[in-house]
Nucleic acid binder design. Structure first.
Lengths: 202, 202
DNA sequence: GTTGTTTTGTATCGATCGCTATAAAATCCA
DNA sequence: TGGATTTTATAGCGATCGATACAAAACAAC
């Protein structure tokens, strides 16, 4: 699709790229720790443009959270959903989580939601609601993946999908916390197979 | 023990109480989100006294982390160590963790280390090291509790203490994250018995 | 009662915060 | 080519930041 010609000075920045850059800055420094200077420099966009496009600092933050939830954070879920073999799928979920929390291109470790957004829960209006929503949505998607496997006959009909979904989610939280604390990736991948069995056992 | 008389104007504050108040403020607002005004008001101590006693904001923060690690955060560990029956001990660990992350007197939810200190890992010098140290120390204490149970013959000699210690720790991280996200305490205590069995199974 | 010491209270520092006013630049269109 | 529109660049706003200088207060000791 060709870009429609538009009156006025052309924008110098790409919205999605700028927003991704904002995610990385907030992920490294947190909401309060990231200054407008950090953000304008990192996003390659100056003050008035940032305010025109994203509203204010809080607006940018909430949009950055949405961006993260629908991109980076969904990689483990996508891995779980796309791998056909359920054991490999659960393993892929863990490995994707370890991957984004130890080596994503922005450089910050851990999980943006757990390590940074949770600090602002209760402080930045809207942050806790987005956090709660993300937890519940992830639980639901994981449970749905297990339900699909039950329908296929690969898991027993009495397999407790909701409980195991929460279990998988909680284990991932431990891993990403360790990553943020600086523990090496290798120590995180130990025992993944045991944990896969634990998730899927009846 | 009588208080030794001291030349000069008596201090108006109690160091431990002031430090506990600082923990609560940092736990609610994070390092950057807590201003010196927030801290001096909450601690009931003014600027010059705070600087004389604790150094600077960063020094206060690192001491607050130590305080937390050796007090509030150790409640689950103490519960695990003090309960004689290992199944009850593991259950008590979870319940103590849910308790301090949903209803401690300071009001902030979740875990101070996971929800706030992790934001400053990499930003506040010393924070990541204290975090890493706390994770490793907790893993070790949990593993030691399992080893003691093995020596008593209550757990099999091939029980993988280190792996299960990490498992217990990681599961707790999921619970405290949910608490910070605003999920109710009741939903956190569901399936505790299943999880206890999971930890102790061979 | 005075001196010395320690701590608290008040005022204020230089720097930075999030955000906005206004000028200049870069386009399209008639 | 000039006008209109949109965006970027620059300067700067009022407020707050973390930290400190100095005066006053509260004690012990003589």
């Amino acid at each position: 699709m060709t870009t429609t010609k538009k009156v006025g000075r052309p924008k110098k920045f790409n919205r999605d790229d700028a927003l991704m850059a904002a995610v990385n800055i907030f992920w490294a420094k947190g909401y309060d720790g990231a200054s407008m200077k950090d953000l304008t420099l990192g996003m390659g966009i100056n003050g008035p443009s940032l305010y025109a496009e994203f509203g204010d600092k809080r607006g940018l933050y909430l949009q950055a959270i949405d961006k993260y939830v629908n991109n980076g954070a969904s990689a483990p879920l996508v891995a779980l959903e796309q791998e056909d073999d359920i054991e490999k799928a659960v393993g892929a979920f863990f490995l994707a989580a370890i991957d984004y929390s130890t080596k994503h291109q922005g450089g910050a470790r851990g999980c943006f939601l757990a390590s940074c957004v949770s600090t602002s829960a209760g402080e930045v209006e809207g942050a806790r609601e987005l956090l709660k929503k993300a937890v519940e949505a992830t639980d639901t998607r994981i449970a749905e993946r297990f339900e699909r496997e039950k329908r296929r006959g690969n898991l027993p009909t009495d397999f407790p999908s909701k409980e195991r979904a929460r279990l998988l989610f909680d284990l991932r939280q431990g891993l990403v916390f360790r990553a943020r604390a600086g523990l090496p990736g290798e120590s995180l991948v130990e025992n993944i197979e045991d944990r896969v069995q634990m998730i899927l056992d009846c």
